[in-house]
Amino acid sequence: MKIGELAGLVNGNVVSCHDKLDRDIEYAFASDLMSDVLTVRADKLLMITGLANMQAVRTAEMADIQAILFVRNKTVSEDMIRLAEDNGIVLIESPYTMFRASGLLYSNGVKPVY
């Protein structure tokens, strides 16, 4: 699924890398714990998290994660946007809960990593 389409499904607001919305996402992983995210080996991965801080973006940078979906109305800071822009990571804010966002993406074909 294209990142742009996925953002639409979760009523999302894209706040970085607007030029990368046609990138393809195949898998998603939802967690607020970054070391859990860092165990995932899949490519074309979306991170879904309620953790809106620099370390969420750093984690995506280290793990080559294409996009982060921040749930529960978490707002992304300017520093996070800068770091994401530097590393080509799309950040999306969604008002939905992690459960609702995950359910919507799952039922529209985004795959779990296991």
Binding site: L33, M34, S35, D36, L38, T39, N53
Partner: peptide, 15 residues
Amino acid sequence: EMGFGAGMGLPNIKA
């Protein structure tokens, strides 16, 4: 609160 404490860091390093 910062998003750490899963107890997965050292096992991740090993892996």
